[in-house]
């Protein structure tokens, strides 16, 4: 199977081991979990009742149903915090190995440069999944502790059961992961350009910032649909009945395009590069 051949299971396992034995990874996941916790505490402790529509979207609903905490926290984390943690792991992929010198030892083990890129990319994808689910799970837990939990009234006015609501949370976390795949590929490419991980991380974060700014400027409307951040907040469509699929489908295609283009650029760069670090 092409996939198994490209990945090499042993190397993938050590990649995950490295990702999840690093204190940095756990610190970032803990920080992600803090977002819904701080949000829920702030709402619970404030005496003022929010009028519907005030503050971030859904914020007024959190007090009525704790299950909304995760959704609200995701809306807050999407523009900056999640991309920040993702730029750390994806900027580190190749630049981190190069910077500490292990890249040369991996390559003479030998591993093909293509396989190494695939394994590195899947490692960052694993972190993204962990981050998105951490946020939703922490949100559901703190929401259940501080607020009433019951059937959820969706944006479309329909009501779904608590069990169904958990499925929607998993969908939101999955959609978020898919939304980040393009940025992960951009990060992988930028990471092949330098041996200084911090430089690559900063570069990746800047691309997400620039993309979001362009997306907010009407003068750039022609390219809005092509920006990798364009559909990031569209997970709200998962909170409708039936689930609105059109923008999600466009997003999947768009992210796939970014993965192909920047994955190829990363390979082109790494394959032709002299490893002098």
């Amino acid at each position: 199977m092409l996939f198994a051949k490209a990945v090499s299971l042993s190397l993938m396992l050590t990649e995950l081991q490295i990702m999840f034995t690093r204190r940095r990874t756990w610190a970032m996941l803990a920080a992600i979990a803090m977002i819904p916790i701080v949000l829920a505490l702030a709402v619970a402790l404030s005496s003022e009742r929010l009028a519907p529509g005030e503050g971030p979207p859904f914020l007024d609903r959190v007090t009525q149903n704790g299950l909304f905490t995760g959704f609200t926290a995701m809306l807050l984390a999407m523009p900056l915090f999640l991309p920040l943690t993702i730029s750390v792991v994806s900027g580190d992929t190749i630049a981190g190995e190069a910077g500490q010198g292990t890249l040369r030892y991996l390559l003479i083990a030998p591993v093909s440069r293509f396989r190494l890129l695939v394994v590195k990319y899947l490692g960052t994808l694993a972190f993204t999944i962990a981050g998105a689910f951490t946020l939703m799970i922490a949100g559901a837990l703190i929401g259940a502790i501080l607020f009433p939990v019951g059937p959820v009234t969706l944006l479309s006015g329909d009501v779904i059961s608590v069990g169904e609501a958990f499925w929607r949370m998993a969908l939101v976390a999955s959609y978020t992961t898919v939304s980040m795949t393009g940025m992960l590929a951009i990060g992988l490419f930028i990471s092949t350009l330098t041996t200084i991980p911090v430089g690559a991380m900063t570069g990746v974060l800047i691309t997400s910032g620039v993309s979001q700014i362009l997306d907010n400027l009407p003068q750039f409307e022609a390219i809005h649909d092509w920006l990798f951040t364009h559909y990031w907040l569209d997970f709200a469509d998962i909170l409708r009945q039936p689930i609105e699929l059109s923008s999600m489908g466009s997003n999947v295609l768009l992210q796939l395009g970014y993965v192909v283009v920047f994955g190829s650029l990363a390979y082109g760069r790494l394959a032709s590069k002299d490893i002098l670090s």
């Binding site: 090499s8 050590t14 034995t21 030892y105 591993v111 396989r115």
Partner: peptide, 20 residues
């Protein structure tokens, strides 16, 4: 050159796993 946060042994296992 090694991963400073892995043990010496885990470092060797990592490098060996790179060759499929």
């Amino acid at each position: 050159a090694f991963y400073p946060y892995l043990s010496g042994r885990a470092n060797l296992l990592r490098m060996d796993s790179a060759d499929r």
